[in-house]
Amino acid sequence: MIMGIITLLITIFAIIGGYKELKRKNFFAVGFAAISVAVFGWFSIRTLIAFFLYGGGGTVG
């Protein structure tokens, strides 16, 4: 559960950073922020889904 929360915080910070860099027109940083949001967002959502649906992660089956 703590892994999902940490990656969710990283995702939120990447969204904020991407927005700030978009205002500065630094598109290289916006690209890295978008990649970070995609990767860490995916892991946070999947970790939280696994925790709530399957009781704490692990293998499903």
Rank of each mutant, 00 (worst) to 15 (best):
M1H: 11
M1N: 11
I2G: 08
G4R: 05
G4A: 05
I5P: 03
I6M: 06
I6S: 06
L8N: 01
L8Y: 03
L9F: 12
L9M: 14
L9H: 04
I10N: 02
T11S: 07
T11C: 05
T11K: 00
I12D: 04
I12Q: 05
I12C: 09
I15D: 01
I15Y: 03
G17F: 10
G18V: 07
G18C: 09
Y19P: 00
Y19C: 00
L22I: 02
L22D: 00
K23M: 06
N26W: 00
N26L: 04
F27M: 13
F27Q: 07
F27S: 07
F28G: 04
V30Y: 02
V30C: 07
G31N: 04
F32V: 01
A33F: 03
S36Y: 01
S36L: 11
V37Q: 00
V37Y: 00
A38M: 10
A38G: 11
A38K: 01
V39P: 04
W42G: 12
F43P: 09
F43D: 06
F43L: 14
F43W: 07
R46M: 15
R46K: 15
T47W: 12
L48I: 15
A50Q: 14
F51Q: 10
F51N: 13
F52T: 14
F52M: 15
L53Y: 10
L53E: 15
L53W: 12
G55A: 12
G56R: 07
G58R: 11
G58K: 09
G58T: 09
T59P: 08
T59D: 13
T59G: 15
V60A: 12
G61S: 07
G61M: 04
